[in-house]
Amino acid sequence: MNSLFEDLCKGLQEAIDFEKGVGSAKRTTYVISPIKEFNPEQIRQIRNNAGMTQTVFANYMGVSKKTVEAWECGRTHPTGPAFRLLDILNERKETNLSFVEVL
């Protein structure tokens, strides 16, 4: 197994060679879509489409049930990571999701 140092040296040498016009470089492009924001009714609809109670939804989102209630009433709003999870659930609306509530 190569050491981290050896891997870094190899990568640096490949970059130098590429700049000199020798060899080719691997490129990876990541596209990060903007965060979609959801209003209180959309949040409730996403939860209902997933077939989750507020308690199960809160556990899935990593927040308290009171937080979910506040989101659905419009008193507070989710943050970026929560909007990402909401978007994932919203995109899977056609999928039947199964959740088991563990108390």
Rank of each mutant, 00 (worst) to 15 (best):
A58G: 10
E101M: 04
I35S: 12
W71M: 00
T79Y: 08
N59V: 10
A82R: 11
L89G: 03
N49W: 04
G51T: 13
E41P: 00
R44V: 07
F83C: 12
N96R: 10
E69A: 15
L89R: 01
R44D: 13
E101T: 11
N90T: 00
G80M: 09
L86H: 11
Y60H: 15
M52D: 09
C73I: 00
T79D: 15
V68Q: 05
E72V: 03
L97G: 02
V63R: 10
T79H: 13
T67N: 08
R75H: 12
Q54W: 09
P78A: 05
E94F: 01
I46G: 06
R84T: 11
N48T: 14
Q42R: 12
P81C: 06
Q42W: 04
G74T: 00
M52K: 07
L86F: 10
E41R: 09
E94Q: 10
K93N: 11
N59M: 09
H77Q: 13
R75L: 11
A82M: 08
T55S: 14
A58F: 08
T55N: 15
T67W: 04
M52I: 06
R44F: 09
G62P: 14
S98C: 03
T53R: 13
L89D: 01
S98N: 12
I46F: 04
N90H: 10
P40A: 01
S64K: 13
T67C: 12
N59T: 06
L85F: 05
G62K: 09
Q54K: 15
A70C: 13
I43S: 08
E91S: 10
L89Q: 02
P78H: 05
F57Y: 14
P40L: 01
G74M: 02
L86W: 09
A82W: 01
G62V: 07
L97N: 10
F83N: 13
K93T: 05
G51A: 13
W71N: 03
I46Q: 09
L97K: 01
G74S: 01
T76L: 04
E69T: 11
V102R: 04
S33R: 12
A82P: 00
P81Y: 07
N49G: 15
R92S: 08
T76N: 14
V63A: 09
T79C: 02
M52L: 13
K93D: 08
G80V: 08
Q45F: 06
R75W: 04
R44S: 14
Y60I: 10
H77T: 12
R47I: 09
Q45R: 05
C73L: 12
D87T: 14
F99L: 02
M61L: 15
M52E: 08
I43P: 10
E72D: 02
G80I: 08
F83I: 02
N90I: 02
N49Y: 05
G51Q: 11
E37I: 14
L97V: 02
A58I: 06
P78W: 01
K93A: 06
E72T: 01
E41Q: 11
F99M: 08
